[in-house]
């Protein structure tokens, strides 16, 4: 294995482009965390709007969620990056990456949250109302906290999903790991080897993330949830 790596210059390329690769990785990770943060917040709001909002709000949230989930992420990025400038709205590739992934992530998070909201049983509402809680108090203090706990496995999947899909930044040229890879490859013409390195980096990051997430989940597990 080691022989393979040296023979095919993989280690060479990795070492001599280490700085650039790491800067790409840093962008990828920052993008992932920021997108997950805002995507989760907007996702929860969308789910609440869909499940509890008045008709027009519920309708708008539903349409948003279904339209985003029904179309490819790349198409969404293209609309932001190529179509909006025709109307004088011009975003940089970096902005499009942050914006586009957040828009996409929110829709998926909303769908997971909605599923969890709906799985909270009627007895929970009955108990809360019988204590004199108002509807909004019941949703905020009883239903939502439970729904969030039910959503955690789906959310961690979404984290991995977003981490992987930030590689689409490559297509619009935001400086993520893959874009940096393309830059390196376009100078040394070692496309396969450079992308192979990128694949290994993604693999390692995803495996480490999954491991950490499992640890965190185990630590904060509440008996009776999953």
């Amino acid at each position: 294995m080691l022989e393979f790596l040296t023979e095919f210059m993989i280690i060479d390329i990795f070492v001599s482009n280490f700085g650039r690769l790491m800067s790409g990785l840093r962008f990828t990770l920052t993008l992932t965390f920021v997108v997950m943060f805002f995507g989760t917040i907007f996702g929860v709001l969308l789910a609440l709007g869909r499940s509890y909002g008045i008709k027009p709000i519920s309708w708008v949230c539903t349409a948003y969620i279904e339209l985003i989930r029904g179309t490819p992420m790349l198409a969404q990025l293209f609309i932001l990056y190529f179509a909006l400038p025709a109307y004088g709205i011009r975003f940089s590739a970096v902005t499009v990456a942050y914006l586009g992934f957040t828009i996409n992530c929110a829709a998926y998070q909303a769908e997971y949250t909605r599923g969890s909201l709906e799985s909270v049983g009627a007895d929970q509402y009955k108990s809360a109302y019988s204590l004199g809680m108002k509807r909004w108090q019941t949703i905020l203090f009883v239903v939502l906290p439970q729904a969030i706990r039910w959503s955690i496995p789906a959310w961690t999947n979404e984290f991995i999903y977003i981490l992987k899909y930030t590689s689409l930044a490559y297509i619009i040229g935001a400086p993520d790991l893959m874009t940096q890879g393309k830059f390196i490859a376009s100078r040394n013409y070692q496309f396969f080897r450079v992308y192979f390195i990128a694949a290994i980096i993604y693999l390692v990051i995803v495996l480490i993330s999954t491991w950490i997430i499992d640890k965190i989940e185990a630590k904060f597990k509440i008996p009776g949830f999953g």
């Binding site: 992987k164 899909y165 990128a198 694949a199 993604y202 693999l203 995803v206």
Partner: peptide, 8 residues
């Protein structure tokens, strides 16, 4: 499942 689709 870990390597991004685009990279594959």
């Amino acid at each position: 499942r870990s390597i991004p689709e685009l990279v594959l």
